[in-house]
C-alpha cells in the first residue's frame, strides 16, 4: 500500500489481527480483523471509528500493551510484532503514547514531578552533570506549564493541564513516534483547541509522527495528513485528508460525515446528505457475513451479503473497501459522478 511515498514509512502494519477469546469456546471477539496501513515520517495518520470499531485495540497493539494474534508491525523497518512484554528499552523510548483520559492515566497518588521523572530515570536521560529537576522544569516549559507544578498532584490541576502533563511524559524520552488515543475527547472544546495546537507545534519542533485515534472527523480535517476509517475491526477507507473530505467514497464514511453536528452552512454543504444514519455497529463477536457494514448500508446489494470486499485503490493513495468500487472502471465512474 502507498508505494508512492515521498517521506519514509516509520510504521508499517500488515494484515494485523487481534482476537480476544470469549467465555464460549471457539468464539472470538474479532477486535481487529486484518488491517494494513502505514504512517510516514512527520505525518499524522488519523484512525477514525466508533466505539467497538477496534481503533483503540490497534493503538494498544502498536504500543505493545498486548501481543498480536496475526500479522506484522514494522517500526523503522524492524519487526516489533513479537512478544509485547519483551520489547527492548530502546523501542519503548522511541514509541510513546498519550491516553484518552488524563484523569486515569496519571497516578493520583504521585506528584507531577514524580510522574515525569519516571521515564527519565528508566531511560537514564539526564546525563552526567545534568540535574533531574532542571530537565523536569524544561519538560513542563515544553508544554507551557509553570515549574511549581512539579510538586502538585494531578487532582489539583485542570483537565487540560493534566493532559499537557501526560503529553510531557510522552515526550520525556524524545520519542519519534507518538500514539495519541483520543487525547482530547474528555476535554472541553476551548481546552481541546489549545492541546491540538500544542500537538501541532510539538510535531514540527521534534519531527514527530502521530497515530491519532479519534472518533471526531471534524478534528481530523484540521489535523491529519491522512485519514483511515475503521468499522468492525477493518479499515473501510483510507486517503489523504484533503481528498478524503472532498470526495468521501465508502457509504459508511458518508454516513459518519452526514451525522456530524456542524455550526455553519458552509460545513453543511460538505456533508453528503444521501446517507442518513441508521442501525448500530454489531457486536464484534457476531460479525455479519460478507461486508460487515451491509446491515446498515443503504446501497447494499446481494454480493455485499455474501462476499467481504477487498481494498481497492480508486485514485492514487485513496483506498476503499467496498463492492461499489470493486472494478477500477466502475470506481472511476462513481468518482466522476
Amino acid at each position: 500500500m502507498g508505494c508512492n511515498t515521498m517521506a519514509k514509512d516509520i510504521l508499517v502494519v500488515e494484515n494485523l489481527k487481534k482476537y480476544f477469546p470469549t467465555k464460549k469456546k471457539g468464539l472470538y471477539v474479532k477486535a481487529v480483523d486484518g488491517i494494513s496501513f502505514t504512517v510516514r515520517e512527520g505525518e499524522t495518520l488519523g484512525l477514525v471509528g466508533e466505539s467497538g470499531s477496534g481503533k483503540s485495540t490497534t493503538a494498544y497493539n502498536v504500543i505493545g500493551m498486548y501481543g498480536v494474534t496475526a500479522g506484522k508491525i514494522y517500526f523503522k523497518g524492524v519487526d516489533i510484532s513479537g512478544d509485547a512484554g519483551k520489547r527492548p528499552l530502546s523501542l519503548k523510548k522511541d514509541l510513546q503514547m498519550v491516553f484518552q483520559d488524563p484523569g486515569t492515566s496519571l497516578n493520583p497518588q504521585r506528584t507531577i514531578g514524580q510522574i515525569l521523572a519516571l521515564p527519565l530515570k528508566v531511560h537514564k536521560i539526564p546525563g552526567e552533570g545534568e540535574r533531574l529537576e532542571d530537565r523536569l522544569i524544561q519538560l513542563l516549559e515544553t508544554v507551557e506549564l509553570p515549574p511549581e507544578y512539579i510538586y502538585k498532584y494531578p487532582r489539583s490541576i485542570g483537565g487540560g493541564e493534566r493532559q499537557m502533563v501526560a503529553i510531557a511524559r510522552a515526550l520525556a524520552t524524545n520519542p519519534s513516534f507518538v500514539v495519541l488515543d483520543e487525547p482530547t475527547s474528555a476535554l472541553d472544546v476551548s481546552v481541546q483547541a489549545k492541546i491540538i495546537n500544542m500537538l501541532i507545534r510539538l510535531q514540527k519542533q521534534f519531527n514527530l509522527s502521530y497515530l491519532f485515534i479519534t472518533h471526531d472527523l471534524s478534528l481530523m480535517r484540521n489535523l491529519a495528513t491522512r485519514v483511515a476509517i475503521m468499522y468492525l475491526g477493518k479499515i473501510a477507507e483510507i486517503a489523504p485528508a484533503v481528498d478524503f473530505f472532498r470526495s468521501p467514497k465508502h457509504p459508511y464514511t458518508q454516513m459518519l460525515l452526514s451525522s456530524i453536528p456542524v455550526i455553519s452552512g458552509a460545513e453543511e454543504e460538505m456533508k453528503p446528505k444521501k446517507v442518513p444514519s441508521r442501525g448500530e455497529i454489531p457486536s464484534p463477536v457476531n460479525v455479519p457475513p460478507g461486508c460487515g457494514f451491509h446491515p446498515r448500508c443503504p446501497m447494499a446489494r446481494q454480493i455485499c451479503l455474501e462476499v467481504d470486499p477487498i481494498m481497492v485503490e480508486t485514485i492514487p493513495d485513496h483506498f476503499v473497501r467496498c463492492h461499489l468500487f470493486a472494478g477500477a472502471a466502475e470506481a472511476r465512474e462513481v468518482v466522476g459522478a
Binding site: G160, Q192, A193, K194, R221, N222, I263, S264, M270
Partner: peptide, 22 residues
C-alpha cells in the same frame, strides 16, 4: 465568539488557539 472559533470545522483551516485561562 471564542467558543465558536475553537470548534474544529469540516471546512478545515485549523483551530483557534483556544480561550486562555480556565
Amino acid at each position: 465568539t471564542g467558543l465558536l472559533s475553537c470548534i474544529p470545522k469540516l471546512t478545515g483551516g485549523g483551530v483557534a488557539e483556544g480561550i486562555p485561562g480556565r
